[in-house]
Nucleic acid binder design. Structure first.
Length: 278
DNA sequence: CTTGTGTCCTGTAGGC
DNA sequence: TGCCTACAGGACACAA
């Protein structure tokens, strides 16, 4: 569930807590969360390294270390990062990085689908091929309506499915794709290549806007409470969701009598207002 | 290449 | 009340 706004929020909050800190040692508590190289290799490879900065690409968080190493983290559905005191226990903890200030960076992941990779900056392994092939972020200048129109041209798949394709544009998941399509007034099952120019224009704008709004409100914490801020507490974009998680409820647009519908699109749930979205 | 489907993983919502 | 199944989600493997 962490999508671009959630990962960016985590990055911003973690940054002052870990930048400049040295990793004294690391413990991988569950080996299969290491995507590359392996648990011992990751533990050994980060020991003694200093955290230079925190970066992000799409939904990947990149912990830049000295000696040209990157610790790449993908939170997938339920991954979580927080800085704790070294004695503190963390539920579903999968890895811990002890820092030189008595704190520790903990990686928790109940589903155990999240992954960590320790790589040399100039040679990312095949395990991270998906990351290398990612398209631009909708909030970056290299993404615009003309680019999106080109990527959707001739495609027969549902526009919702293509918004989830990280190779077209990265960082968007189920929540923000639903919200962007609502803002653009486009139904999720519409065939991407059949959208009109003005529709794609609106969609490109909506994608950028909804991601920026998500960041502004520190991400979306759903009722399951899985996404929590690294410094504790919840995001607040869930209060502003137009359609996600609101199936069966009235459309939020003033004066609209529509009821938010839930429909499977390409194997995933999609929500939309049948009145506002054509 | 494109598209749709199944798999991973496990806590939990919902059904009976 | 309690058990059981289905589902959620992102990325990727795979089939057609």
């Amino acid at each position: 569930m962490p999508e671009l706004p959630e990962v960016e929020t985590i990055r911003l909050m973690l940054r002052p807590l870990v930048t400049g800190r040295r990793i004294v040692r690391a413990h991988v508590l569950r080996g299969d969360i290491v995507g590359f190289p392996d648990a011992p290799g990751l533990e050994h490879g980060v020991a003694g390294r200093t955290i230079v900065e925190l970066a992000r690409k799409g939904k990947y968080l990149v912990v830049r270390l000295d000696e040209e190493r990157d610790l790449v983290v993908h939170l997938r559905l339920s991954g979580h990062l927080e800085v704790v005191s070294q004695g503190d226990e963390v539920d579903y903890e999968r890895a811990r990085f002890e820092l030189d200030d008595g704190k520790a960076l903990a990686f928790a992941e109940p589903r155990a689908l999240g992954r960590m990779f320790l790589v040399q900056r100039d040679k990312y392994p095949p395990e991270l091929a998906g990351m290398m092939k990612m398209g631009p972020e909708p909030i970056q200048p290299d993404f615009d309506a003309a680019f999106l129109r080109e990527r959707l041209r001739g495609r027969t798949a549902a526009v919702k499915s293509l918004l989830l394709d990280q190779q077209i544009a990265c960082g968007v998941g189920n929540i923000y794709s639903d919200e962007a399509l609502f803002r653009a007034g486009i139904r999720p099952h519409r065939r991407a290549g059949r959208l009109g120019k003005s529709e794609v224009d609106r969609l490109a704008r909506a994608l950028a806007d909804v991601l920026k709004d998500g960041i502004r409100w520190c991400g979306t914490t759903l009722r399951d409470g899985r996404y929590q801020l690294p410094e504790g507490g919840a995001g607040s974009f869930q209060k502003r969701l137009a359609v996600f998680g609101r199936e069966g409820e009235r459309c939020r647009r003033r004066g609209c009598a529509g009821v938010v519908r839930l429909q499977k699109v390409g194997g995933r749930n999609a929500r939309f207002c049948p009145v506002c979205q054509k």
